[in-house]
């Protein structure tokens, strides 16, 4: 097993590689957290035009929603600010079961 194989992939490195391969790339970044949040501000998730992704912005709670939004962002070319929290009955669908709130900036790398 190589070091690269056991080390956790670096999302920005993956983004740079995908761009060099001509893939469309969106970058999601946690910009603010309130209360208990699984990933700190500055954490990245990268998504390509086919929905492949690397990295994380939460503990797996909201990644699905961010990936779906990324497809829109890649089509429109405009960045978007997303907020997730546990405020209502949808918490178990898209939200943070830990009770925190996070803001995620989603942008095309283009």
């Amino acid at each position: 097993m190589s070091e690269a194989a056991i080390a956790m992939a670096d999302p920005l490195e993956v983004a740079a590689r995908w761009i060099s391969e001509g893939r469309q790339v969106a970058l999601a970044t946690v910009i603010e957290t309130w209360g208990s949040a699984p990933r700190p501000a500055g954490s990245h998730l990268v998504i390509d035009g086919d929905g492949h992704f690397e990295g994380s912005v939460s503990g797996g709670c909201v990644e699905g929603a961010v990936i779906a939004e990324a497809i829109d962002v890649l089509q429109s070319g405009m960045p978007r600010l997303l907020e997730f929290g546990v405020a209502d009955e949808t918490a178990w669908r898209v939200g943070l079961s830990c009770g925190g709130r996070i803001a995620v900036f989603l942008e095309p790398v283009a």
Binding site: L12, I19, E107, A110
Partner: peptide
């Protein structure tokens, strides 16, 4: 973010 900025950032990190 422009891809060139990402490239510069990766160069600094490396």
């Amino acid at each position: 973010m422009h891809p060139a900025i990402l490239q510069q950032l990766q160069a600094e990190r490396q």
